[in-house]
Design a protein around this nucleic acid. Structure first.
Lengths: 207, 207
DNA sequence: CCAGTTCTGTACTGAGTTGTCAAGAACGAC
DNA sequence: GTCGTTCTTGACAACTCAGTACAGAACTGG
């Protein structure tokens, strides 16, 4: 018995994420968010409690998307675990996160992991951002480590290697790819890096 | 026959760099820079042409420092090339750049490569920043690749591996370490990542 | 059709920011 | 000591921004 919302929450937060990605947190004003989302200032404040709130909630839905997409993309039969790891590394080149419904980024600089980018910019002064970014990292960690274990079970990776250590390293490489991509290096170069990383994964000792 | 400057240019730019590191480019006002450097607004504008100029010139001296320090830290006899690569990876954990006179960062978030951090934040909209960051990357690339070649000559690394590819990968890992560090992970964890990376470097085929 | 409730749009305020300007300070030449 | 040049300081005007307040719109139950 009241006026209904005229916007879709997730849609708005997604548009805000795009804006934050391209211009950074401190580089976007509330008016920018307003323009990007089509929401008026008043509604923004009433619904999300200002810039802080928009960022936190945008990161929260980003996390949810990751939490759904990452396991789906990296889980599967042991036989194809290596292929999935390979695909994950290559996908990082174009900055496409693991979630399916994320549109390709307009330019490479905005392609980096949203959580990582925000953590780099304001994580030091906003502990909530740091926490949310860490949650994103954890979700990916678990999915990648599980995939590594699957590859080990299938005899594609050295069973003596610590799967968690390997997963950490792989994620570090993926995050590093974001940075190198921000320098403006070509996708071909980034692909080459990803392939090198994949090639160096420890294979089982020659029987 | 005129009033002499009362400040040291490099000293000022170094203080500005520290400020940009901790609060980001868009997160620091000209007054912040003024307070951090001890220079008045007027002098800042007259000398550096505002925030843009301060950032560009601060990055420029950062580049100079890197261009001097990186070859020094990574060059040397072939016999100890592997040790130097190892040390380089471990040093990345604490975010200490290759230059000697850079003080240890106050917190890990500010420890990341200055050039990389600025490129991530404003590289998309400021091509000069992108260019300067790329120069920094190139200098490191050359130094690391040379060190890889030295290790190959000494028989510590697989001579069939492409030294440039390997150097790109190593730098990607170092940059990724910066990001993972920004999440708040412990130095122990970062050290573990660096050690894993070092352990995976391709050794020569068993003779 | 009306009343009640919730949402939306806009105008406003106070704080913070940028870039400029003019007056004064420090020095060397003469 | 005086003058000209260059640097420094502090103040100032224009602007932007975050956050708030209020009036009106949209909708539903009765």
């Amino acid at each position: 018995m009241a006026r209904p919302r005229s916007f879709d929450r997730d849609h708005v937060l997604h548009a805000a994420e795009r804006q934050f990605r391209t211009t950074g947190y401190n580089g976007t004003s509330v008016d920018d968010i307003s323009a990007a989302t089509g929401m008026g200032r008043g509604s923004l404040y009433a619904t999300f409690d200002g810039k802080h709130g928009v960022l936190h909630q945008a990161m929260s839905v980003y996390f949810t998307r990751l939490a759904q997409g990452a396991p789906k993309a990296l889980a599967g039969p042991d036989e194809s675990a290596m292929e999935r790891l390979h695909a994950y590394l290559l996908r990082a080149v174009h900055g496409v996160p693991l979630a399916a419904d994320v549109p390709p980024a307009p330019d490479r600089a905005a392609a980096a992991c949203f959580a990582a980018k925000m953590a780099m910019e304001v994580g030091a002064s906003d502990s909530e951002v740091k926490r949310l970014a860490n949650d994103c990292f954890s979700v990916l960690m678990t999915a990648v480590a599980d995939c590594v274990r699957a590859a080990q079970r299938n005899g594609d990776l050295d069973p003596d290697a610590d799967p968690d250590d390997l997963a950490y390293l792989l994620l570090t490489i993926v995050r590093g790819t974001d940075v190198v991509g921000a320098y403006g290096h070509s996708p071909a170069r980034l692909t080459s890096i990803a392939e090198s990383a994949f090639a160096l994964l420890p294979r089982p000792r020659h029987r």
